[in-house]
């Protein structure tokens, strides 16, 4: 219990600092933010109205607390270009990103788990060398290039799968899944490489420990030893990497969504950057950071489930 309380308390200063950094974003714009957003041709009335809307006519500390008060009540401001609440824009875009994140993660796991286990169990054999080199290669492939390659192969040359045309799962599950295969493949391959490397090195740390030798000496076969004893003890770094991966994907599928025309959260940020809709950029960035903080918190709490020594304050 103390572990959970302590971890929750540690999150508070991070959240405060994240809010200050996000708030500062608009104030980092060189010159007058309202002038930059509206351009030089804006009328004095429009200029003044935007300054008032953004609260730029108040002292900076007052601006922060007023903004923070609104954020806490779920108000992230009004989009400058679309004139709708930013929170609505985000909540419209998040489901596609969440679906893409889950699909990518599942795809990464399906490849990384067997490859990582095989590489560790068959250490220094061709299986290990091949999968390790493939993983290093996978980590080096730019996502957006891989996305183009899969589009050329699966869509342009063979017409097997669509490269765009996202529809929500609730409207047409089949079309939705078909549209999600290529984006998940293009993003998941790289993520599987990262996971596989982490799993392999983590398994190698555990595989030579005394309890594993004891299990083998007692006659347990290799599969049962690895799956029943080694894997669980090697999971903490893998869970950490998975957590960071999910957090990064939730806020960072910017390019995949752009290439496959998926109306997701990442694409919203890119569109807002180009439209100079700083209020939306600010709100979206705050949400992406909050997602990372929450996922990291959940991962830390998951440690306690995987390794009870942590909950008892005896573990790492």
């Amino acid at each position: 219990m103390m572990f959970i309380v302590k971890r929750l308390l540690l999150t508070i200063p991070i959240l405060i600092l994240v809010s200050i950094m996000t708030f500062s974003l608009i104030h980092m714009i060189p010159g007058d933010p309202a002038r930059v957003i509206l351009g030089q041709e804006a009328t004095p009335e429009a200029y003044q109205a935007l300054r008032t809307e953004l609260g730029l006519d108040k002292p900076i500390v007052e601006q922060y607390f007023s903004w923070m008060g609104k954020v806490l009540s779920g108000d992230l401001g009004m989009s400058i270009t679309d004139h709708v609440p930013v929170i609505d824009l985000i909540s419209q875009r998040l489901p596609a990103t969440i679906e893409l994140t889950i699909g990518t993660f599942v795809f990464a796991l399906v490849i990384a788990l067997p490859a990582g286990i095989l590489a560790a169990v068959r250490r220094n054999t061709w299986v290990d060398y091949t999968s390790s080199f493939a993983a290093l290669g996978g980590m080096s492939i730019p996502n957006f290039w891989l996305a183009m390659m899969v589009i050329i192969y699966f869509t342009v040359e063979n017409n097997w799968l669509p490269s765009s045309g996202y529809v929500p799962f609730s409207e047409d599950p089949k079309a939705n899944l078909m549209a999600m295969i290529l984006p998940c493949l293009a993003t998941g391959l790289r993520e599987s490489a990262v996971l596989m490397r982490m799993l392999r090195s983590s398994l190698l740390e555990v595989i030579n420990m005394d309890f594993v030798r004891t299990a083998k000496a007692k006659g347990l076969n290799e599969v049962k030893t690895v799956l029943g004893h080694v894997l669980r003890n090697a999971m903490i770094p893998v869970v950490t990497t998975s957590g960071l991966m999910i957090a990064g994907l939730l806020g960072g599928l910017v390019i995949t969504e752009s290439i496959f025309s998926i109306p997701g959260f990442g694409r919203l940020i890119v569109e807002s950057v180009f439209k100079r809709d700083y209020v939306t950029v600010q709100g979206a960035i705050l949400v992406s950071a909050l997602l990372v903080v929450v996922v990291n918190l959940l991962v830390d709490l998951l440690y306690a489930v995987i390794d009870p020594r942590i909950k008892a304050g005896k573990g790492a």
């Binding site: 991070i14 994240v18 950094m21 974003l25 608009i26 980092m28 714009i29 060189p30 957090a247 990064g248 939730l250 806020g251 960072g252 910017v254 390019i255 990442g266 940020i269 890119v270 950057v273 100079r276 700083y278 950029v281 960035i285 992406s288 950071a289 990372v292 903080v293 990291n296």
Partner: peptide, 15 residues
């Protein structure tokens, strides 16, 4: 806490 590419995007957007 800020995803790397998002942070880079935000800074590029501002600057």
């Amino acid at each position: 806490a800020f995803p790397f590419l998002i942070l880079a995007l935000a800074i590029s957007a501002v600057l």
